[in-house]
Design a protein around this nucleic acid. Sequence first.
RNA 1: GGUCCGGUAGCUCAGCUGGAUAGAGCAACAGCCUUCUAAGCUGUGGGUCUCGGGUUCGAAUCCCGACCGGAUCACCA
Length: 621
Amino acid sequence: MFFMNSLEQQINELAKAAVKSLYAVEATDEQIQLQKTRPEFEGNITLVVFPFVKIARKAPQQVAAEIGEWLMANGQKLIAKFNAVQGFLNLVIDDAFWIKQLEAIDADGQYGRFDRPSDKALPFREGEGVGSPLMMVEYSSPNTNKPLHLGHVRNNLLGYSIAKIQEANGWKVVKTNIVNDRGIHICKSMLAWLKYGNGETPETSGKKGDHLIGDYYVRFDKEYKKQISELMAAGKDEETAKREAPLMLEAQEMLRKWEANDPEVRALWAKMNSWVYAGFDETYKRMGVSFDKIYYESNTYLEGKSEVEKGLASGAFYRREDGSVWADLTKDGLDEKLLLRSDGTSVYMTQDIGTAKLRFQDYPIDKMVYVVGNEQEYHFKVLSILLDRLGFPFGKELVHFSYGMVELPNGKMKSREGTVVDADDLMDKMIEDAREISKDKVNTLQGITEEEANEIARKVGLGALKYFILKVDPRKNMLFNPAESIDFNGNTGPFIQYTYARIQSVLRKSVSPKDGLSSVSVSGFTGAAGLSLDSKELALIQRLCEYPATVRTAGEDFSPAILCNYAYALACDFNSFYHDLSILNEPDETKRALRLLLAKNVAKVLCSSMALLGIEMPDRM
RNA sequence: GGUCCGGUAGCUCAGCUGGAUAGAGCAACAGCCUUCUAAGCUGUGGGUCUCGGGUUCGAAUCCCGACCGGAUCACCA
């Protein structure tokens, strides 16, 4: 494995030695503060010397100069020169170091991938096995009563990307999905379909199954509201009307029948769910997400019920007079939580308990991560306590990866009211837009087949969508304005894809891509020839060196956004380099070889980082 | 009301484990294609980092307090 931040490590040690030698004090890691040199100053890496000013009893500028001199004298040629500005010691690293780094990166086929998670991320069963610890990542978790919308898109993209990022960090990852395939909401769609559907199917209507079912969910809500207002007009108050509306009573009856295994209800349920799954599969496939193991609530809720019963027996929970079962969480600073309704049916929490138990039976999970919106923070706080109370050792260790909502300009999306941005429609739109834009590219895309053009549009359109969503800090709410289309210019997925495509084009045109790529001689840049790295070349190498540490941080912080920022910065650096310096037309062979090597590795890292985001790269666009 | 999260350019967002003159993109304006892909590059304008205190050599960043916005505290999921 290529070690991360080798430069920072080396400077760290040198700086400690310098401080010890100059001021007879052992500096701590905390005191050695390194940062990238700001572009307006000369240098690559900067040591902040303020922490030593008191120790040295000298002016910051002088301390910086002294340390600089010492490093020059004792740094084994690592540091070519330095300048001291106020309390900042800017170090210029010798070209030879950078060339060696680039060669090491090029030689590393797994650059940016780790064998083991960092100590910081190690799980609670640490030290148990050899090999990689196992992380299970739950994401998506749809209800089967409506199609996926933009909120699900954010969830799916985050979940998939998190899984990829953790894999790169040395975890074995099992991607999982819990399908909420039962419950009152499903019954609502079923009931509406029975009453108003006239036997409509995906085949007869030509609609995707999930959309068809979604339509009936909306229909239920419409008819239900109508009944409520009728009841209210007849003198009932709103609460009573909501509770006594015939449609609601029927839906509840249907749920009871479902739990009682009523054959007719079950058959209808199975049929309608199968339509939905076919629709979901299509959407997932297109989105590029996948799962290693899918759980269905209908298979786990009984397990949950039996766990609740056990908890009841052990005194962890209690039953009220009406028969409902509760957990008292007041000692944990929370409320009382319902686990089973008075009619015996289970709720969301019940099911989650059962699912958790089954998962830990099925896999040797070291860390369980739930990718679920921040609106459910309370739920997972409670789940964690309940599992712990039921005696499951993993209860306390659950990670709720809580991400922010996607908001529209006028507020939240509401499925029942139809104010949602549909996932399928959005992907269609993005791909269409990409196709439209690429029509102007007659020069670069001439001679490609219709199929290739479609494939490029697909990658670019989805790339734009994915990057747009993933570049935002996952913890924060984000805004999506349907009236403004997602950009293809600037800080976007297509910008990074474009950079990659440019590099591929250069590599295709280089007479023999293999020639010269591996034969850059360090001495060519340090010996008598007197070659030196251009600042643009150097910036690129330095950026490439930051990749492994970026992957680490993205893993520890569960943040695809960090990788977006990195990939964008790398692409910016490359485009600037590409603009200023010629690769193929460079007459000096050593320089040309170096630039080709650089281009090749920039492409490699761009592709690798985008892959961790689930974004595919086109070879041309 | 309790708890949690957020407030940075006209808009969307970085930066937040304290460091140099707060950054990108979009939008606006001005340049750059007989030269490796102009989905690119360069430049201009645009800021009381919500407000007020505190900590210190140094605060967008940490602490306290306001104000504003959001989430949550269901026999919904």
